[in-house]
Design a protein around this nucleic acid. Structure first.
Lengths: 217, 217, 217, 217
DNA sequence: CATGAATGAGGGTTCATTCAT
DNA sequence: CATGAATGAACCCTCATTCAT
């Protein structure tokens, strides 16, 4: 009995925490970290500004928790995903489709995360304990996505499908950059593009580069 | 006489405007737009905070003028640059080397510019007249770099060196993203990497992609 | 039957009210009125913050009730106390010993009360009805202690033991100040001193002043 | 020329810093540290709230600087003061008259300082560098007054005028307590009492205690 | 009665910008 | 032109108090 109540209350609380993040993804996405006012988030979430502090330590905490949630959701998606095993290209196609599909819906926020990484972190060096671990989690979550790509690339390298002399890390890095570029583009345009087209083009470029496939001739 | 004095004074004024930008590139690069305080810039430039307003309208104006200057400098460099004509690859190598060399010295600021583009612009819709034209200039300047790449790509496509079915714009976009990715990486690491290595790797990837050159076999 | 239940419930309620005050004496003593958070008291008392409002009107009410309780307890002690009748000095010794012993255990809180008196009251002029009477009680309770001293002094004056030309009120005032001074000293040092020593010294000073007893010579 | 300007500007700045303190002594005196709003001080001083930050780091800094100034002023007064050399009593009379006269005009603030000492300091242990030294200064300044009294007492002890077996420190402590008691009394009453009367009474008590002078008989 | 959650009302502080000298 | 000083306008965050369960 008592336990049931507790779990229910825990669930409600978690739901509200998520409501706040849902509101945040919109506002942070639109305005970026600095120009976002707690009040905007509160209004969007249907809370008062002060209430947010029942759920998160402070503004930065909301941002980080959100980034973590979004990245982990994505990772979870990938872990339950059956990637085609026939070829690197089709595996990457599936992967990118899911990735862009998921990220795309939050492209603006993803862009904000990148900005946050390069703009807010660098320089800061003194954090409180809580902050410290939260940031670690954040970085881990962000890194985990890259690792998914890295894994794909590594497999393809082992199987001989990737014959590039470049290190797996370098290739992964470039793929990431390209994806982030897409997010930026959409953010600036204000809307998503066509996912299928976008993925196909990325694939084409990633697999064959610019000088391209006809090299065989 | 009078004219001479005027031109001299103009020159002095321009010199000071540039001093301010020189200071800004450092501070904006380190802290990003939002976390930069006018006072930081003033201190770095050897002025008082109030003096900055003798030379620029406001904080955003400094940022935009700086971005414009940096991008135009780069463009000027390219216009006086004799790119090798023998192959797309060697032209691109030269181009990238110069680009990364120049940008690299300001990588942190370049990262800040990207963040600014995606984080500050979007959402704003009411600008004063002055702002309006300044922003146009800024966007033009940023775009001009991309056009340099686009021109290279176009030529290579005409000459048949690029056989990718992708549009020239798409290829250009990916190359840009990769370069921006490098800037981000350096910014996060806090220092530049080895330019030659970096350029070679980019080249390798851009030209042949991941599955790579040995496709011939 | 019904009555019994009611009295029992009343007793429980009173017990809880006292629990809250027990917690408060610690927290108010350590942090003073302003820096004490209701949450600190609640935690210390094993209640939730909201529950406190079932027992007391508000923060100030807790503080006042506590001060009243502590002072009345002390007065009760004195009323059941058989002071030696042989001399002013020995009566005062017993009195001070008990006073300092009792107060001393709560020295930090006593210091907080003084601060509260001079810092919070003065200036306030609009009080609600409830507040009004509570404050009266508080002031009465604080005054009652002084009256105990006053009574001692008066008796000694009547009996000729006190030959000072000073009014009984003045002497009482000085004794109070000295006692409060001890509380402050302990509060700042963070711990009580030796009661016997302290009382003896106070006695010496109060009875003979600085120029002192040897005046006879 | 240039130097003159600088010293003048320095003087103006110092004058303004003092204006702020002048305003603060009133407000802090009336409301105490916690209930004082920066805005109150600003209004009283004829500044905007934000302007205060041109002169002092923060609220606590204003309070501490003020306390230091007041205490040092008093000390300076004493150092230029020719205390009668004929007897402890007349020296103490002059001393107390000046002390109460000076302090009295600021009695409310002096009370606030005591509250601050016991209420705000205790517990805090982590301070910034600046704070650290400022607090040291504050404590030194407060202590210096006590030392003046201690010196008087010591001399009188050496000269045999004070025959009390109590330590000089103890006597000094009691005198201080009594003075602070007066400040509290005035603060609670809302106005100063008659200085001459007050001083005479203190003297009487301090010199002969309660049982008093006629002990000779 | 107990309490988790919600919130209004502020407070201290920051900073881009303006103004007077 | 240079600058110290002044300030309006926010913003983040805190906390006593209220409310719904």
């Amino acid at each position: 009995m008592e336990e049931l109540k507790e779990t229910r209350e825990k669930a409600v609380r978690d739901a509200k925490r998520n409501l706040i993040l849902d509101a945040s993804v919109k506002v942070f996405g639109e305005k970026g970290f600095h120009e976002t006012r707690l009040e905007d988030i509160a209004a969007q979430a249907g809370f008062s500004k002060a209430s947010l502090y029942n759920y998160y330590e402070d503004k930065e905490s909301i941002f980080l928790h959100l980034a973590i949630r979004e990245h982990e959701r994505l990772c979870d998606k990938f872990e339950t995903l059956d990637l085609p095993k026939d070829s690197f290209q089709s595996a990457l196609r599936t992967f990118l489709t899911v990735l862009v599909h998921e990220m795309g819906a939050r492209f603006a926020f993803i862009a904000a995360v990148s900005n946050f990484q390069t703009g807010v972190f660098c320089g800061h060096e003194t954090f409180g304990k809580h902050r410290e671990t939260l940031i670690k989690q954040f970085q881990t979550a962000v890194a985990r996505i890259q690792e998914q790509i890295l894994r794909l690339v590594s497999q393809a390298k082992s199987s001989g499908e990737i014959r590039s002399p470049l290190s797996e890390q370098a290739i992964t890095k470039y793929i990431s950059s390209i994806i982030r570029g897409i997010m930026y583009e959409w953010k600036i345009k204000g809307k998503m593009g066509d996912i299928t087209v976008e993925v196909n083009e990325i694939l084409e470029f990633v697999c064959h580069g610019a000088t391209g496939p006809a090299q065989t001739a």
